[in-house]
Every structure is written in C-alpha cells, then in structure tokens.
Design a protein around this nucleic acid. Sequence first.
DNA 1: TCTTATACCGGTATTAGTATCACGGGCATG
DNA 2: CATGCCCGTGATACTAATACCGGTATAAGA
Lengths: 91, 91
Amino acid sequence: MVRTPLTPWERQRGERFGSLLRQARGERSMVEIAAAAGVSAETLRKIETGRAPTPAFFTVAALAAALEMSLDELAGACSKGADGRAQALPV
Amino acid sequence: MVRTPLTPWERQRGERFGSLLRQARGERSMVEIAAAAGVSAETLRKIETGRAPTPAFFTVAALAAALEMSLDELAGACSKGADGRAQALPV
DNA sequence: TCTTATACCGGTATTAGTATCACGGGCATG
DNA sequence: CATGCCCGTGATACTAATACCGGTATAAGA
C-alpha cells in the first residue's frame, strides 16, 4: 500500500469541514466565493459537500480569506465532534 | 486543460513554505515532528524541500500543531515575498 | 410558458500529494 | 577497519484533488 486511502473518519471530518464553509458562505453564491478565492466553482462545491475531504492548504487558505475566517479556528473546529467535544485523532 | 499545472509562483511559494517549516523545526528531527503530526517523514521532507508545494490542509494543520505555530501566520507569511513585502497574487 | 440562474450529480482527464522501499552519508562503538 | 544506527534522500506506486463537460432539478422572473 503506497498511499493510505482516506479513512471514514477523515471523510466525516471533510463533511464537517465543508459544512463550516457552507455556513460561513451564507447567502453568497458559490461562484462568487470561488472566484474571489481563485478556485473553480466545482472545487468549492466538492469541498462543501465533502466529496473532496482533504483539500490543499492554500486552497483552504484562499477560501478562508474570501470568507474572512480564521484558519486556526477552522482547523480547530474540524478536530472536534459535532457536539463540540474534542475528538481523538486516529493512531 | 483539466487540472492546471502548478505555476512557477506556486512552486516558489512552496519553497518558502517549506523553509518556514524547517526553520520552525529547529534542532528537532524530521521523524520526531512527523510522528507527532501523524504523517510520514518522507512527506515532511518533501514539504520542507518544496517538492510538495501544495500540501493538504489537514497535513499542514497537524504539522503546525506539532510545531506550535499559527496557520494564519503561516499562510500570511507565504503570501509575502522573501523580503517581507506583500506579493501580488496571480490572476 | 419560456428563459435564466443556481446548485447538484456523474463522468473523465491530468497533475500532484502521500507512503513504502531501497540507498548512501555521518557517527559512535567494538 | 568493520558493524550497526540514525538521518536524510531518490525512486517508485497508488490514491486523491482539481478542472472541464454535459445533464438534471428547482425557483424566480419576463
């Protein structure tokens, strides 16, 4: 095995991550944010829907800048469960 | 064109990004930091040397946590030139 | 009703990130 | 000098991210 396939946990984390972005987007359209971040609308959609669970760092950074949110908060929120409790990382 | 190849600018940004990580690592070994972040040492090496110029977001987040550095500062530092001046993003 | 805009979905193509394997350099110890 | 150990590196394999295309559904407006 050369590259570990994404675990279910990572996919769930991707879904939570996408939900946060969608929530932060609010009323604004996908194309608007995607254009502001310099990524394609399809990419933004895949990230928001969790179909791209581990996006590139600078892609996320650009989106966060377009949405005016903190990367640290974003990463912190995704390491916690939906109920807000801290979630253990897989070994 | 299906996926845009990385531009020279993006590769240079990756080199700066890696330099920052290596600098932050200091005396500690690659394996130590990689193990703490939960990634392979080779991956950390590629990121540090700039051969993986656009690493995954959660990979960077884990490394930043292991190095105790801020993601926002990291992203901000990479959007600036080596001299510290702000650098224009590509269109 | 017809058009338009937005978002979702499936498929496809291509590049890039990540992990495993194998190798060489430095350094200590026998 | 030989041996083993740790670190970093090069090559290779495989999966995932990104982008483009076409189609579909829904809602708003002319």
